[in-house]
Simulated assay, not measured.
Amino acid sequence: MKIQDFIQNRSKENFALHDKYLNSQMVKVLKTIDFDRHYVRAEGAYLFDEQDNRYLDLLSGFGVFALGRNHAEIVEALKSTLEADLPNLVQLDVSLLAGLLAERLVKLTPDGLNRVFFANSGTETVEAAIKFSRYATGKPKIIFCHGCYHGLSLGSLSATGDDHYKKGFGPMVPDFIEIPFNDLEALEQVLAQGDVAAFITEPIQGHGVWIPDDDYLPEAARLTRKYGALFITDEIQTGLGRTGKWWAVEHWSVEPDILCMSKTLSGGFVPVGALVCKEWIFDRVFNRMDRAVVHGSTFGKNNLAMAAGLATLEVLESGNLIEHSARTGAAIMDALTPLTEKYECFK
C-alpha cells in the first residue's frame, strides 16, 4: 500500500469522507465559516492549498506545533528510529529511549520532580495525576478551577470547569470540587476540610488566557502543603517554552508536586504526554513488585513518541527557542499594551 497513491487519487474526498464516516457537524462548521480548504502541504507556521495559497496557522494545532510543521530535525529523528529496527513495545522490558527522555525531562523540570510517567496525551497525564494523588495521600477530593480545561476523558472532564463539555455526559466522577480561579480564600476553605488529595490548575488558563495575581500560585502551593494536599500544575499548553520559560510556573518560582505536559513534546508528529512528580508520590503508587503495572499505558513509551520527544527538546535547546519565545512575547505585549486603553476587556 502506497500512501502517496491514496493522497494523489483521492485528495478531494476528505470532506465527503468525514461527512459520511466521521464528524459531519465539523464539516458543516468548516463550510459555514469558509474554512473548507484542501490543504496539500505544510511548512513551519504555514499551510498551503492546491493553488499554493499560503495560510498562517495561528491555531497551531491547539499548541502542538511550537516548532512548526514538518521540522526537519524531528523528521530525521523519526526516520532514523524506524530504520534502526529497534524492539518496540516489548511489554516485559524497559525502553532505552524512554529512559533517556525521562532523564532529560527530570533535568528540565522544577527541582524535586524526579520520576516520570509516559502516556499518549495530555488528558491521560491528568488522569494519572488524579489517580496518583488519591493513592499517595489516601484522600478522595480534587479541587479545580472554574473556566479551566484539563481534558475530555471522564476523570479529566470532571476536573474541567466548563459545563459546555460536561452537559449530557454525567454524572461526573464524585469528589471533584470547583472553585473560582485566582481565589485563595475559596481554595483554603476547601483545603481546610482535610480530605483533599490535590489541587489542579493551569498556571495560565488557556480558555481565555487568564493570568493569575502574582501571589496566587505561590500561595496555592503553600496552602496545599499546609493542609496535606498535592499541587498539580497542568502545563500541557503552557509548558515547553510557550511563555518564555520552560514552564509557566517558573514565572512565579513555584515548585509543584506533579507537573503534566504534552502537545509540544510530540514535535507535531507522535502523540505523547508525560507526568513528572516527586519520588515519594511515585513510590507510594508503585510500592511493591506486584504493583509494577498497576497504572500504565500500552503505547505510552513507544519508540517513535520517545524519539519525537528527545528531538523536540534538542531543537528547543540548541535553537535557543525558549529565549526567542520570551523576546517575541515581550515585543507582542509592548505592541498590544497601548490598545488596552482603547478597547475594553471582558471576563
Results as ranks from 00 to 15, higher is better:
R327T: 05
K2Y: 04
L310D: 00
E279K: 12
H150A: 09
A220T: 04
K2S: 13
H150P: 03
T109M: 07
K167L: 13
V196E: 03
S80F: 14
D85R: 15
A326E: 01
V75D: 11
L223R: 06
E219S: 02
D213E: 13
K226P: 00
L56A: 08
L59I: 13
H164I: 14
V190L: 03
E202K: 02
S11A: 09
Y135G: 00
M26C: 07
S156D: 04
R242I: 11
E344T: 15
N287Y: 07
L30R: 07
I177M: 06
S266H: 08
Q8D: 13
Y165L: 14
K347E: 15
E185L: 06
I200V: 07
E323N: 02
G112C: 02
N114H: 03
L101T: 04
G161E: 08
L259F: 02
F6W: 11
I177G: 02
H146W: 05
Q193D: 00
V276F: 09
E185N: 12
T340F: 12
E13D: 15
W210Y: 14
R69Q: 10
W280G: 01
F48G: 03
V40I: 15
I142C: 06
L152F: 08
G309H: 06
P110V: 07
V254T: 03
Q51W: 15
Y55S: 09
T224P: 05
R288F: 10
K342F: 02
A197K: 00
G63S: 12
E202Q: 08
G122A: 11
L30D: 15
F181M: 08
T233E: 10
V196T: 05
K278L: 01
S153L: 14
F65R: 00
Y39E: 13
F346C: 13
Y39A: 13
L217K: 01
R37N: 14
S266A: 10
T328N: 06
A77G: 01
W246H: 12
S266C: 12
A326P: 00
F286R: 04
H295A: 12
D57K: 05
M26S: 06
A229C: 02
I3S: 10
F6H: 12
V75L: 14
G228I: 00
E83F: 14
R284F: 04
L58K: 10
Y46F: 14
I33K: 15
F169G: 06
T238L: 01
K79Q: 06
F299G: 15
A220D: 02
K278P: 01
Q205K: 03
D93F: 12
V126M: 11
Y165M: 11
V293S: 11
N287D: 12
H251P: 03
R54E: 15
L191D: 02
K342G: 01
